[in-house]
Design a protein around this nucleic acid. Structure first.
Lengths: 115, 115
DNA sequence: TGCGTATATAGGCATATGATTATATGATAG
DNA sequence: CTATCATATAATCATATGCCTATATACGCA
């Protein structure tokens, strides 16, 4: 009963802690509109590739995101099947869109396009 | 425009970081149903009084909670006027009620009643 | 096969966090 | 005014976090 609404406090606080980092939060919001690969994040956040990888790992460890290889790149996307996705979605819904970051990338010709 | 929905990313991630701690998250959820004083939190969380004070301070610093003195005690309550309260409320709404913690306190006769 | 590119992991370091104990503050009751 | 009780702050410490550089892995392609 009440399956849709309840998350236990420990899980919830762990999720919030992960989202409580500007880089990861922005990643999640961004992933809601486009899948991205690691090197795109590196450009967007002006951060070393290992730093990006480590943020993604944390998101992946609790299965908030999943990865898909496309050619040379690994694309990350939101795992909409996550048990707590409605919770996450509620949070992300209050945030301003981050599409501008991708637009900027495109302007610099750095957007990765496969196939 | 879009005043209701948008919180900037930095503020949002700071809020989420604060809520990304089980003690503080539980405090906030609890405060939605009852105001509490510091000594009640000490009992509920089985934690030292300074530890509780410091958590409350963090919540107070960004004005998520406010304090009111009642006799010897200082009661904390949610600041529903906070600009981001709708955001917070959305989050807390997904969490299981924590009234049980207060019920337990009452059972032990430790609930503070003023006036 | 072997090279280059994309990503992941390891190790190290500076800073942040959350707890504790000791002490200070501040209101109330006598 | 003083003693007491509730709460806040300070100092300290162990652990967690987030970044970097160096290195490993893994796939794609000549």
């Amino acid at each position: 009963m009440n399956k849709t609404v309840t998350t236990d406090m420990q899980r919830a606080s762990q999720l919030l802690k992960l989202l409580g980092d500007q880089t990861r939060l922005t990643m999640m919001k961004l992933l809601q509109s486009h899948d991205c690969c690691v090197c795109e994040f590196v450009e967007i956040f002006k951060m070393s590739q290992p730093a990006i990888s480590q943020h993604l790992r944390k998101l992946r460890d609790i299965e908030l995101v999943k990865e898909t290889r496309k050619g040379k790149w690994i694309f990350y996307s939101i795992n909409e099947d996550h048990e707590d996705y409605p919770f996450i979605q509620g949070i992300l819904g209050h945030l301003p869109g981050q599409e501008g970051l991708v637009t900027e990338l495109e302007a610099q010709g750095l957007r990765i396009c496969c196939e």
